[in-house]
C-alpha cells in the first residue's frame, strides 16, 4: 500500500515537474523582452505602460483564467495600490520605490482578502455587482477625500527616490521600463510557480466544477480567497508601478473603463495560460496607439467593436484562428503544455 502510494507520489511529482518545466518559447519571449530594453530605447515610455498593463492582466488571469471568477471591478485593487504608493511617497513615509511597491501590494492584498469573502457569495451576477460596486465605492471615496487624494485633480507632488537608491527615474522612461519589466518578470515567475503547484491545479479543478472539486476534498472557498488575495496584491503592485513611474495618480486608475479594458486585454491574449495577459497587453497597447492616432477622440468605439466581434465570432472559434496561429505555434514550441 505504502509502496503504491510512493510510486503514485513520484509519478504525480514527475508530472507536475514536467508541466512546470521552462519551455524554449518562453525563453524566447523573455529574451525578446530583455532585447527590447537595448533595441528600442525610443519606445521605453510605451513599453513601460505595456509592462504595467501586462502585470495587471496577469493578475486578472489568475482569478478569471484559473479560478473562473468574473470581475468587473479589478481596477479597485489597481487603483488602491496606485494611491497607496502615491500617498506613501508624497508624505515621505516610503520613498524608495521597491519598498513602496511591496507596501502597496500588501495593502491591496489586504483589501483583496476582505473583498474575497464578498465575492464568494452568489452567482455571476452578484459577483459582477460586488466587484463593480467595490471599485465604484473606492473611486467615490478617492473623489470625496480630496484633502488626502487631491480629488478630481489627481494626486500631485509625488517625488520618488531612485530605485534601490541608485537608479533615478528619467524623462525617457528608461529606468521606468527596466524597473517595470523586472517587477513583471519576478511576479510572473511567482505566478508561474503558483499555477503549476498542486494549489494551482486545485484552482483549475474549482473552475471546472466547484461542486466536484469540493467533493474531492478541495477546500473551495479557502482556495478562492487565497488566489483572490494574491491577485489583488498583483493588481496593487501594477497600480503602484504606474504611480511610481509617472509620479502622478488620478481618479482614472479606479475607473470602470480600466476594468473593462482589462477584460479586453485578457480576452485578446486568451485566458488560463499566463502569457495571455502579456501578449494581450502588447497587442492592446499597440492597437490603442494606432487607433488613437487615427481617431484620437473615438478610439473607444473601435475597442467596443472589437469586443462585440470577438464575442459574436466566439472566443472558442477564435482559438481556431488566432490561437491556431499563436497558441498552436506556442504549443509546438512548447510554450503552452498540450491539453
Amino acid at each position: 500500500m505504502s509502496a503504491l502510494q510512493g510510486v503514485l507520489a513520484t509519478a504525480v511529482a514527475d508530472h507536475l515537474a514536467a508541466r512546470a518545466r521552462w519551455r524554449a518559447a518562453e525563453l524566447v519571449f523573455w529574451g525578446a523582452a530583455l532585447a527590447s530594453v537595448f533595441l528600442l530605447p525610443g519606445k521605453h515610455l510605451i513599453l513601460a505602460e505595456i509592462a504595467i498593463l501586462a502585470l495587471f492582466a496577469l493578475s486578472l488571469d489568475l482569478i478569471l483564467g484559473y479560478a473562473g471568477i468574473v470581475s468587473l471591478g479589478h481596477a479597485a485593487f489597481f487603483g488602491f495600490g496606485a494611491y497607496a504608493a502615491g500617498l506613501l511617497a508624497k508624505h515621505a513615509l516610503i520613498t524608495e520605490p521597491v519598498l513602496g511597491l511591496l507596501a502597496a501590494g500588501l495593502l491591496a492584498a489586504l483589501l483583496g482578502f476582505a473583498c474575497a469573502f464578498l465575492v464568494l457569495r452568489g452567482s455571476d451576477l452578484t459577483r459582477l455587482m460586488v466587484t463593480l460596486g467595490v471599485a465604484m465605492m473606492l473611486r467615490e471615496l478617492a473623489n470625496r477625500l480630496d484633502k488626502l487624494t487631491g480629488g478630481a485633480d489627481g494626486l500631485q507632488g509625488i517625488t520618488m527616490a531612485p530605485v534601490l537608491g541608485r537608479f533615478s527615474f528619467d524623462i525617457t522612461g528608461h529606468t521606468a521600463y527596466v524597473y517595470a519589466l523586472a517587477v513583471l518578470f519576478v511576479l510572473f515567475v511567482v505566478a508561474r510557480r503558483i499555477v503549476h503547484s498542486p494549489f494551482g491545479l486545485s484552482l483549475m479543478s474549482i473552475r471546472g466544477n466547484p461542486l466536484r472539486a469540493g467533493a474531492l476534498g478541495v477546500p473551495v472557498n479557502a482556495r478562492l480567497v487565497a488566489i483572490y488575495t494574491v491577485a489583488a496584491g498583483y493588481a496593487g503592485v501594477a497600480g503602484a508601478l504606474l504611480t511610481q513611474t509617472t509620479a502622478f495618480c488620478s481618479l482614472d486608475v479606479l475607473s470602470f473603463d480600466r476594468s473593462a479594458d482589462l477584460l479586453l486585454v485578457l480576452i485578446i491574449g486568451g485566458t488560463g495560460y499566463l502569457y495571455g495577459g502579456l501578449i494581450g497587453a502588447v497587442v492592446f497597447k499597440l492597437l490603442q496607439d494606432a487607433l488613437a492616432t487615427l481617431t484620437p477622440q473615438y478610439w473607444q468605439f473601435w475597442i467596443g467593436l472589437i469586443l462585440v466581434i470577438i464575442v459574436l465570432v466566439g472566443r472558442e472559434r477564435m482559438s481556431g484562428w488566432w490561437h491556431a496561429a499563436v497558441a498552436q505555434g506556442a504549443r509546438r514550441l512548447g510554450l503552452r503544455e498540450r491539453p
Binding site: 455571476d124 477584460l263 472566443r315
Partner: peptide, 17 residues
C-alpha cells in the same frame, strides 16, 4: 456570462463614442 458582459460592454462603448 463572461461573453455577455464583454459583448454588452462593447456595445455600450460603441454607443458612447
Amino acid at each position: 456570462h463572461l461573453d455577455q458582459v464583454l459583448f454588452t460592454i462593447g456595445l455600450a462603448f460603441m454607443a458612447v463614442a
